[in-house]
Design a binder for these strands. Structure first.
Lengths: 254, 254
DNA sequence: ACAAAAGTGTTCCCCCTACACCCATGT
DNA sequence: ACATGGGTGTAGGGGGAACACTTTTGT
């Protein structure tokens, strides 16, 4: 049944999708003190791949990205960003060509798959706890893997992930990207650990607190009742309205 | 003769180039107190267009960009950067379809031109005085036009230029982009006027000088003999070696 | 009582800002 | 002499870095 779906998908691809252009999304989340990327384990191979796909002939590239992230995560409202086009020669769907499906395809479908592809890289920032990862029809599993311990991947997906991280790191100075990765309510310490993770460096506790609060984009909520043997910290939430006002004048954090 | 070249180019395009992908380069220069972009005036139309083209099936996208900029400017060593993929539906080579050449083309060639195109945006920074602008076969003229007074352009080239400027402006904080736009030797005042142009705001003379010199990427040369009724300023040149050392630790200017 | 982590305060110092002041040069 | 622009000096303030102190809570 699933086999039939794959065959149909590949057989019709050359009629539905733009030729030679694919897209890959680096979906990033944060849990257990690590930035993680959502990867798909391909059937028939011991290789992982980024969620991705093709762009329908009558579809905006941004819209195609939105659709793919929604399918893999279940999320509707998304923060995502295009960051690079990977256009080296020799990129193609080689892993599909070798698959058991390729043989059954028509000549047109096979030619379409065999052509060179350029791919548009997007990154998306999501809250891991809100996501229910969904493998696509070509993959057998789907998992959040820490970006500093990537498994073997197809093609240049390793490079795509690393390039994405670099862009996120640079955006940290201007946009409160961290807030797209945390749950609705969080403590300053949690936010600091996230920042330390992204930038890969320790920060001073007291200074971090003052600095992030002075941006005036967080709202203090009730105190957190914790089971920890220490003072209960405040919870905060991100204030999108205040943020929208600030952003026009530029936010400088680091 | 030129007519024949155009026909040949368009007729063979579908065999040589990647389908559905084009590239456009925002070539920026600086002269007479204005940031200027190199635009081509199309034959048969009263419209301007960015230098651009297609990507050969066996050619890296970066290489195709390099080739195009070299053809239009004569420059070999270049600072250029990919910044965005423009992928809205409805983008195509509409201006070519209406041209007098389109009628003579084979069905294959016409279909290739009629398809939807996504385009990769690059920007390049050049020294205007070193450039001898060269129109391509589809254009009758080629000129440096100030980016704040753009003429009517084809498609979304207006948006592409403005997006490019935004990226350059943001890079100004991290890379000495200004130095790719000035002649080999320049005064601090000239550099300041350039920065003021890009950022569109006045800066303090004394502070600009200290700040830019403290980056320690400029080398002071001999004094300039000027015809001006004032003290002769020093000339400086950009020190690429020092810069390469600095950049790893990050350069913060603004 | 004590440990652990949160919240807040303090001091030092650097750097940015804003001007002011001299210097060199051509008219 | 004087205007013009170049180079440098300086006083003040804001903010970051480092560290200290107090507060709350569970064991």
């Amino acid at each position: 049944m699933i086999e039939k779906k794959i065959s149909e998908y590949l057989e019709n691809a050359h009629e539905i999708f733009l030729p030679g252009v694919s897209l890959d999304v680096v979906i990033l989340g944060y849990s257990e003190n690590a930035i993680r990327v959502l990867l798909l384990k391909l059937k028939e191979y011991n290789l992982w791949a980024l969620p991705g796909g093709f762009i329908a002939k009558n579809e905006d590239v941004d819209a195609a990205t939105h659709k793919i992230v929604k399918e893999r995560t279940g999320l509707e409202k998304l923060y995502f960003n295009q960051f690079h086009l990977f256009g080296k020669t020799g990129r193609n769907a080689s892993f599909l060509q070798e698959s058991s499906h390729a043989a059954k395809l028509s000549a047109d479908a096979r030619n379409w798959l065999n052509q060179r592809f350029v791919t548009v890289g997007y990154f998306a920032l999501v809250r891991i706890d809100q996501v229910v990862p969904q493998p696509d029809i070509l993959s057998e599993a789907c998992d959040w893997l820490p970006v500093d311990q990537l498994p073997a991947t197809i093609l240049d997906h390793h490079e795509i992930v690393n390039t994405a991280i670099g862009h996120v790191r640079r955006q940290l100075n201007y946009f409160p990207v961290g807030l797209n990765l945390l749950p609705e309510r969080f403590t300053i310490s949690e936010l600091q650990r996230l920042y330390e993770c992204i930038l890969n460096q320790k920060m001073d506790r007291g200074n971090f607190q003052r600095k992030i609060l002075k941006l005036d984009i967080l709202v203090r909520l009730e105190k957190l009742k914790t089971g920890g043997a220490h003072k209960a910290p405040y919870l905060y939430r991100f204030d999108r309205d205040k943020y929208q006002h600030k952003i026009q004048h530029g936010i400088g954090f680091i």
